[in-house]
Design a protein around this nucleic acid. Structure first.
Lengths: 219, 219
DNA sequence: GCCATAATCCAACGACTGTCGGATAATGGC
DNA sequence: GCCATTATCCGACAGTCGTTGGATTATGGC
């Protein structure tokens, strides 16, 4: 953990950036715990212990428990959004270079997505937990999910408009693809087999899925 | 709720089947609450109130809170398994009647699955919550998920052996399909659009997906 | 070198949690 | 009609929860 490598904190006016470091350590510890066991099962004292600080320090930096949870969420999904938007921009640029290039760009985009979630499984855990909170679902959807979905959906729609593929309901395909990836990550975490093989197989499956969308266009 | 239609319970030796009725009411109330808000966020007193009984009565019938949770889980998935096994038997029988009949049977099987989850969204919620519990994941997988997955995977494998379709990794396809359905159910619950249209669109998507597996066989 | 600042910890609060012993009372078996 | 049975509720216990007020102390600005 980050807290282990840092010198034990002591009271007093902060060194430069001490506040930011502590906040980051708390957020990292809280994110891991919330992803693993959920909002209600994690106590603030536990978060504090994992971050190497006192409970009151957690509250001091992140306010209420719900605010801490939201901060963890925002932190993780900002990273995801950043990774995806760069890749999507790339794909959008390739759209004008013909169906073959567009298909290759889509493969790359999906690979970036799969890589990201494989590397940070806590992202999947947080997504699933948020999806299970109906009252926060709407706000979550608008702030995080919708922009990402629109990104890819627009991509597919544009590809369809250029005649590169046929997909009557792009948002359904995208959503199904996203959930399939989450399922893959969950299965990967619980797997006792060869992770490398499972990753390869899933990637191949996703690519076949994308190719299928293109094959339907009969180009 | 069931509790509302039943006469207020009073102490005393039970009428015939009173015990079973109370247990059922408790399980129903607990299942709904656990699905909505999760294990830790639901208190036993809340379950008791929803079932119209006292806390001690809940413990008396279902033991520990964890045992109550497991009982809810087992109850829901027994129903799912029953529904799916009947449909799968049907599909397996149709496998010898040629590719067209087999494909139609697969469509039917998936429709049964989608119908079931659309009708009982709490099933999806409980699945997702269980998947997020890594320590119980293995046991869960072996007791409930594995048999169902093997059912459908065997079906696809047999179809592949008969040359009806080509699918190198049936378990990946099946898992992805299952997660896509769960994603559909979640989106449906949070949707503010037309549920009927979303259901139609998703069903069409799933059928296209299955047809794609067959189309790859180049029959 | 002094002082205001602010990060940190300690201690405690009230509320809520799961669980259990014991009292109550209605019913089935005799 | 009596008795053993048992579903039900009341009350209480020990523990944990999130949160807060106040004391402590090291640092940056002067």
């Amino acid at each position: 953990m980050v807290a282990m490598t840092m010198p034990r904190r002591r009271p007093g006016r902060p060194r430069r950036d001490q506040s930011r470091d502590t906040r980051e350590a708390v957020l990292a510890a809280a994110t891991a715990l919330f992803a693993q066991r959920g909002f209600d099962a994690v106590g603030l004292r536990e978060v504090a212990a994992a971050a190497g600080v006192d409970v009151a320090t957690v509250s001091h930096h992140t306010g209420t428990k719900a605010q801490l949870y939201d901060a963890c969420f925002a932190r993780v999904f900002a990273a995801e959004r950043q990774a995806l938007e760069a890749a999507a921009e790339h794909a959008r640029a390739a759209l004008d270079a013909g169906p073959a290039a567009a298909l290759r760009a889509l493969h790359d985009l999906v690979d970036v997505f799969v890589d990201f979630l494989e590397d940070r499984p806590e992202t999947t855990a947080l997504w699933l937990r948020r999806w299970l909170e109906p009252h926060r679902h709407a706000e979550l959807d608008q702030r995080y999910a919708a922009p990402l979905y629109r990104l890819v959906t627009d991509l597919l729609t544009a590809a369809a408009a250029s005649g590169a593929l046929v997909e009557p309901t792009p948002h359904v395909s995208v959503r199904s693809l996203v959930w399939a990836v989450h399922g893959h990550v969950v299965a990967l975490a619980a797997s006792d087999g060869s992770p490398a093989r499972e990753r390869r197989e899933f990637r191949a499956f996703v690519h076949r899925f994308l190719d299928g969308l293109y094959a339907a266009a009969g180009s």
